[in-house]
Amino acid sequence: MTQHADQTSSTEESDNPLANTGIARVLPAADLAKFDCFKWIALGINDFKNAKVISLTYGIIFALIPLGITYLIRESEFYMVVFPAMICFMLLGPYLAAGLYDVSWQFEKQHKPSLRHSFKAMSRNAVNEWGFGIMLMILMIFWLRVASLIHALNPNYSDTSLASIWPFLLIGTIVGGAFSVFVFVISVFTQPILLERKVDLATAVLSSMNAVWKNKEAMFVWACVILISILLGFFTAFIAFIFIMPVLGYATWHGYIQTIKTKRARKFV
């Protein structure tokens, strides 16, 4: 039976183009059920309840960021950058969530999490963590340039009626959606990998991509949950982010623990 399992695993790896790139090693991923993400959310809610002060602190930070972006947009009266700003917020989310991952990790170790300890989370694998942040920043800048180009191609600057700007909104939505999918694939588990293991950035990114590739349906459901949660946050004037973002951060950590395999079973206690 063991030999059969090894052969099956070997066959899966040979059929997986991500595992044979030669760029970096790829951490193996477990098979997920389609709706496993709801178990992660339940665990995330439990972490929120057990670390209310830390959770609310991070939640307020997550709420203040888009609030600040909106204020700047309103003051400059340049409303066409709302959609790019939303994408930028989604790009920065995985990077800012490192402290939340640390809280869930401390609970699993049966340690008492602290705000100070979570703030130091980025220092464990600093070079690759900052490399990940720079990568997200480059992607954000690239998206802003693409959005500016789309805006420049829109000739009706003075007419802001829906009938006039719908082609611009459609193109922006399609391009932004494709860009968001790409960022999700390369970053869904990258930050937790870098936090728990001292691996290089390429290994973390390829392992995240491999996890999505292997669990397309489960990751699609998880992406939809994230999208709906973010839309809910925007529809509530960012107030819901105070509660949503910490729960999503904790849930992502629990998703990582279930998805990314280790050679030996994790022993947190």
Results as ranks from 00 to 15, higher is better:
F38D: 00
F38K: 07
F38L: 14
K39V: 14
K39Y: 09
K39N: 12
W40N: 13
I41P: 04
L43W: 10
L43C: 03
L43K: 15
L43R: 15
G44L: 07
I45G: 06
I45C: 13
I45E: 00
N46F: 06
N46R: 14
N46P: 01
D47I: 06
D47R: 06
F48N: 03
F48Q: 03
F48R: 08
K49I: 12
K49S: 10
K49L: 14
N50P: 04
N50S: 13
A51V: 06
K52S: 02
V53I: 14
V53M: 13
V53L: 15
V53E: 13
V53K: 14
I54E: 08
I54A: 04
I54H: 07
I54M: 03
I54V: 12
S55A: 15
S55R: 12
S55Y: 12
S55E: 08
S55K: 13
L56H: 06
T57C: 14
T57K: 06
T57P: 03
T57G: 15
Y58S: 05
Y58I: 03
Y58G: 09
G59Y: 11
I60E: 03
I61K: 04
I61R: 07
F62K: 04
F62L: 08
F62I: 00
F62N: 04
A63C: 12
A63V: 02
A63S: 12
A63L: 11
A63T: 02
A63H: 06
A63W: 07
L64E: 01
L64Q: 02
L64V: 14
L64A: 15
L64K: 08
L64I: 11
I65K: 02
P66K: 05
P66I: 05
L67R: 03
L67H: 03
L67S: 15
L67N: 01
L67C: 02
L67K: 08
L67M: 10
G68L: 06
G68C: 06
G68P: 09
I69H: 07
I69G: 08
I69R: 01
I69N: 08
I69V: 10
T70E: 13
Y71K: 11
Y71W: 12
Y71S: 08
Y71N: 02
I73H: 06
I73D: 01
I73S: 04
I73L: 13
E75N: 09
E75G: 11
E75P: 01
E75T: 04
S76F: 11
S76V: 00
S76T: 13
S76P: 01
S76M: 10
E77I: 00
E77F: 05
F78R: 09
F78E: 05
F78S: 08
F78A: 12
Y79D: 07
Y79I: 00
Y79L: 09
Y79H: 11
